[in-house]
Nucleic acid binder design. Sequence first.
DNA 1: GAAACTTACATGCACGTGCATTGGATGTCA
DNA 2: TGACATCCAATGCACGTGCATGTAAGTTTC
Lengths: 128, 128
Amino acid sequence: MEAEVSEDVCTKWSETLRVYHTTSCELENELQDGHDLGLSEFEVLKILSSKCCDSTGKAKMKDLEAEMYLSQSALSRTVTRLEKAGLVTRATCDFDRRAMFLMLTPAGQERYEAAQPTYRGVLLRHFA
Amino acid sequence: MEAEVSEDVCTKWSETLRVYHTTSCELENELQDGHDLGLSEFEVLKILSSKCCDSTGKAKMKDLEAEMYLSQSALSRTVTRLEKAGLVTRATCDFDRRAMFLMLTPAGQERYEAAQPTYRGVLLRHFA
DNA sequence: GAAACTTACATGCACGTGCATTGGATGTCA
DNA sequence: TGACATCCAATGCACGTGCATGTAAGTTTC
């Protein structure tokens, strides 16, 4: 029966692997081709966009890091790419000058809204 | 209700992302630290080991590629690493000299068997 | 049988990632 | 206040990956 459990977890893992790879590849390709965005870049815009509903419209790097499956360095570079593309702006925090706030630019908001149907479309194909 | 479906697929995708990242990171780290194997390297050994039950004990690169979520080039380099480590051997096919057969070496079999409990352990923690 | 096409694998290259380190800011304790 | 630890973000570096291409072998078409 232990063998059966092993079989079972192996199957579950294989299935997770399959779903993850097919979906992330498709997201990556369609977001890149259609909107010039990598998947992790889109995910950052997505989180920032959701934060914009609160009063500040800002998010700290640390908060983003906690919500994403990305290392601190990878996140830092992703944000650098988005900043170079004019989609987000960095702003230092007045009270803790180590911390950085992030904000969507209008262009960033626009790009995100344009890309969202593509994103949802892929997910619907795989999970609906 | 469309919004609800969107919510739903987003949640499923987030969950897949979470499980994939935590599990693959853990597998990667534990296999690397304990057995000097990357995850994709382990997966190759795993498939080869299962093939060894048939008469030939060999597998073609193309067959491996079909069973793994890895590009052709990535697989080629993974096999190169395994070959350098002495865990697999490449052999050209007599009937089609483009094709390559792969075989586990005894060291490869041994390494795989040593690593398998680690692999299973991680999966059990995440899927049991 | 020669030319054009296809297939199998390797390799050059660019890119995104994680780890380790750095630089600067904040907190703590004596 | 001064010394030291901690924290945040950026950066150097090594590495694995995918894409595009190269090379060699097989296949098809005439």
